[in-house]
Design a protein around this nucleic acid. Structure first.
Length: 481
DNA sequence: CGAAATTTGGG
DNA sequence: CCAAATTTC
């Protein structure tokens, strides 16, 4: 075993971040095709995320996804090494220790990471290294699509039209057959040392429904194509059905490339209904739009996209009420079901996300940042771009915002999308004893509620009609009449 | 410029 | 049927 490429080739660091896969991984391919011996590394540096260090649910997913990546790398002859940041000095000391001549990574678009990575690239290049970043996360880089005036888009539909006009899917690239091993140090630290895994096992319920990692991502895609894609356009709105793709955490962690998903959808044309395929592609489009917005308007993670809301009269937060929302004890069944699904599984159906977000920002009148923060801490698919856009959209402060007078009525939503109360019964089991239609609006029969579900709140923390009126009042104030 | 268009709603 | 403002062409 002498004279192989691995013996004579210089090493390159392949810095894994949110691209936890071997297929369709341009940074890894750059190392291999550049003739380097890749040294796959992961650096734990949560402080570098600024105010948005990953939450516990996200960490729990990352732990498993990193373990899966390591397993996959080992099957290909390599392995993943973990280090504790800060990132730049860690990279520099690894370069010094290994003699690496290049550093490759795939881009992230969170403002704090964009700033950090720009600096790192400059520094590494300044010391004569090859440092290159690639796109592994998006169909379109955020700066690729512009209006005819050259501005970023602020409305989804024109954005997506421009995207479809520029549509050219990257070809899929299979995982490399073999990855030359790097057998020398430094060893790094064990994954467990990063303490990403919950210590008390509260995440147990998560893993009945999820398999983090590249294999799990491809399985989820197959399941979607064979199942929920047919009828997706309509079925995805019903939270008690398996009507969605459930790809969001896999996409967030880069366990599968969006162009892989898009190509797989396109390949179904003729089979599945074209409208279902278009609807699924559009959802990928929303993810693209969110990244476009975050890149061009990085301040929107904290501040209103629409600055007219800067003086808006949000309600003062009552900690007890906020906690009731977080724990699924508002007394509004569809809201509580959603919040409990989130707490139990690290995920919430998209339709219900809108309902609970509307209840928090409109009926309760709380600043969207309280909801955004809770979602950030509890979702396994927590994604700064999607989370920011979604919350600002519901609150009416965002790009392409819902008009202020559009206040979701949680009861109407429950009747439309959980008419049989199955979703409610699943996540708020104490209401399963209530017959329809009472299960959707138990406050209407206080006696029955007390008798059949004594543990459930006797009435909503904020009455639906009063909450709606208060919201409209606040928003009218903003307009000045 | 003016015109057309605008994620998922409510009553 | 209503409700508004802004974006984009």
């Amino acid at each position: 075993m002498s004279g192989t490429a691995a013996d004579t080739s210089p090493p390159a660091l392949v810095w894994f971040r949110n691209d936890l896969r071997l297929a369709d991984n341009p940074a890894l391919m750059a190392a291999i095709e550049g003739g380097y011996v890749p040294i796959p590394i992961h650096i734990h540096a949560p402080d570098e995320a600024g105010d948005w260090r990953p939450g516990a649910a996200s960490d729990a997913w990352r732990h498993r996804s990193l373990a899966a990546l390591d397993t996959a790398l080992r099957k290909h002859g390599s392995r993943l090494r973990h280090f504790v940041g800060p990132s730049l000095p860690t990279l520099q000391s690894l370069v010094a220790a290994t003699g690496a001549e290049a550093v490759f990574w795939n881009r992230r678009y969170e403002p704090a990471y964009e700033r950090r990575d720009t600096r790192i690239k400059q520094q590494l290049r300044g010391q004569g290294l090859r440092a290159e970043s690639f796109n592994a996360a998006l169909l379109f880089e955020p700066w690729m699509l512009r209006t005819k005036q050259g501005d970023p888009f602020k409305v989804f539909t024109p954005f997506w039209r421009a995207a479809l006009a520029a549509w050219r899917l990257a070809p899929g690239v299979d995982a490399p057959k073999a990855i030359p091993p790097w057998r020398e140090g430094p060893e790094g630290v064990p994954l467990a040392a990063l303490k990403l895994q919950p210590s008390r096992g509260w995440d147990r319920g998560f893993w009945e429904a999820w398999e983090p990692g590249e294999a799990g991502a491809h399985e989820a895609l197959e399941t979607f194509l064979e199942g929920a894609l047919r009828g997706y356009g309509e079925q995805r709105d019903f939270p008690d059905r398996a009507g969605t793709s459930r790809l969001s955490p896999h996409l967030h962690f880069g366990e599968i490339a969006p162009w892989r998903v898009a190509a797989a959808l396109e390949a179904q044309r003729g089979g599945a209904n074209g409208q279902d395929i278009d609807a699924a592609l559009r959802e990928l489009g929303w993810r693209e739009f969110a990244h476009h917005l975050l890149h061009h308007f990085p301040h929107t993670t904290e501040q209103n996209f629409n600055s007219r809301f800067d003086g808006f009269d949000w309600a003062r937060v009552s900690p007890a009420t906020l906690e009731a929302w977080q724990q699924g004890r508002t007394g509004v069944p569809i809201v509580d079901a959603g919040m409990r699904e989130l707490w139990s599984t690290g995920w919430m159906h998209n339709r219900v996300r809108m309902v609970v977000a509307s209840y928090l920002t409109k009926h309760l009148g709380y600043h969207w940042r309280h909801g955004a923060r809770w979602f950030w801490d509890t979702l396994v698919d927590a994604d700064l771009a999607n989370n920011t856009m979604g919350w600002q959209w519901v609150a009416g402060t965002g790009a392409d915002a819902a008009p202020y007078f559009r206040v979701f009525n949680p009861l109407t939503q429950a009747e439309k999308f959980d008419g049989q109360g199955r979703y409610i019964a699943r996540w708020v089991p104490e209401l399963a004893n209530l017959p329809l239609p009472l299960r959707l609006a138990p406050w209407r029969e206080p006696g029955e509620l007390r008798r059949l579900a004594p543990a459930y709140p006797p009435h909503p923390v904020v009455d639906l009609a009063a909450g709606r009126e208060a919201a409209l009042q606040r928003y009218r104030q903003l307009r000045g009449d």
